[in-house]
Design a protein around this nucleic acid. Structure first.
Lengths: 237, 237
DNA sequence: TGATTTTAACTGGTTGACCAATCTGGTTAA
DNA sequence: TTAACCAGATTGGTCAACCAGTTAAAATCA
């Protein structure tokens, strides 16, 4: 459809994102100065925007971010409420949000290891037959490409996502979804593929599946860690 | 400032959120039908909106969600690109996103246990002096209220967030921030407070801190699990 | 007086027009 | 031939006016 981009584009560090953070910071000040209390309704968007000296759109975007973190909840046609979790908590969490940094790759991988290890442990005890079926299907899609020495990073990814789905924990699954694309895009570039290594990886996948079929959490985790030994090396050497 | 809400408002299951998901679904179809390929620039918002038969705002909101999951990246005044992670991955992840359900409380707590356990393990080896100072400060703020039998749920929360900050893993910290408010709001209602129990909790906090000071990961985790024994019971009985 | 209906103001959401940055292709000058 | 440049078209971002649902005070009636 269009020309493919070859090299990673320079990551622009959102120079205008700053206004959003300034607004959050101002809302935090309203809270600590008791002009706004937990459980209160926020002033109407138009009014608050004028009070803070920003446009309504900018304010809405900031509120959207606060809502994502659960610090505020919108009620359409009615108002927006500050979560009733106390001044200390609100102040602390807003401060933390403002300090959030771009995730470094090592943290991403480390977190994936943690989440997926626990997901697999849970999957080994909770998996339904439908989960198993989907895992198997994903594994077959992977094998088909990998066995021919093709790059199967995507199919590998899908296999692992199906594992975390089988954990039966919707939050873990959701968090995996958030961090996976970032990991993939950084991995896909450097990925080398040779048939021999792929055969080994297929075997490792199958070992994990077998452990889940047998409902053996410890073995499933052990096999996963074996499968991830390179990632562990990347994180901890 | 305003009247406090006493009882939980009925959770409205976002009846209009549907349009967003329909749009994502349509974009996914464009991708699987090869009309749109990984790495491509999306058609301009106005054009795509018309093509999909939706308003530009609705489309923008859907794109924003895709961007959150890293499946798309916007370049201001230039265009929006589909992440270059393959058709299979894009299709699979969009399907997963559309299937995401509201998190159940048990999954939230279970995930918190997993994240925080690992955060503390990391904190025990990586913590800086500044981290320690902040943890201590948060603990003192907690103690001061708890020792008088006051409700100190917020201060407790802040203490635990400082623990995960000390992990040195920005992703874990960020994920903890996302799930914590939801947990708090559901916990804060049922929380009972008595001095004796609070004294015990203070001691438990101090044990965790001591282990982190000593850079003893295993002890830190053990003390945390002891501290969380009620939560474990909640999850697994 | 009290319950019920009406109504007007107020809310977040939506819309279409406008803005400034950027990309594109052809043109010009070295 | 090549590099610099300029103008117009295209982009996502922004804004102010408008919409539909909600709310609560005011008006009405039994």
């Amino acid at each position: 459809m269009n020309i493919k981009i070859e090299k990673e584009m320079d990551v622009i560090s959102n120079p205008k994102k700053g206004s959003e953070e300034i607004i959050i910071s101002k809302i935090r000040e309203l809270i600590v100065s008791k002009q706004l209390e937990p459980g209160d309704k926020l002033p109407a968007e138009r009014i608050l925007a004028e009070k803070l000296g920003v446009s309504r759109n900018q304010l809405r975007q900031a509120i959207q971010r606060l809502e994502f973190y659960g610090l505020v909840k919108k009620y359409p046609q009615s108002g927006t409420r500050v979560s009733n979790i106390g001044v200390t908590a609100l102040n602390g969490m807003m401060t933390d949000i403002l300090q959030l940094q771009e995730p470094d790759f090592k943290s991403l991988v480390e977190t994936r290891l943690i989440l997926e290890t626990n997901a697999v442990r849970l999957a080994a005890t909770r998996r339904s037959d439908e989960h198993l079926r989907q895992i198997q299907a994903a594994h077959e899609a992977y094998s088909e490409k990998a066995i021919n020495g093709l790059n199967a990073v995507e199919e590998d990814l899908m296999f692992h996502l199906k594992l975390s789905e089988a954990s039966g924990n919707s939050v873990i699954n959701s968090l995996m979804l958030v961090i996976t694309p970032e990991i993939i895009t950084r991995f896909v570039a450097n990925k080398v593929c040779n048939k021999d290594e792929n055969h080994l990886l297929i075997k490792e996948h199958q070992s994990i599946i077998d452990a889940i079929i047998d409902k053996d959490p410890d073995r499933a985790v052990a096999k996963l860690e074996e499968h991830f030994k390179d990632l562990y090396k990347f994180c901890y050497d």
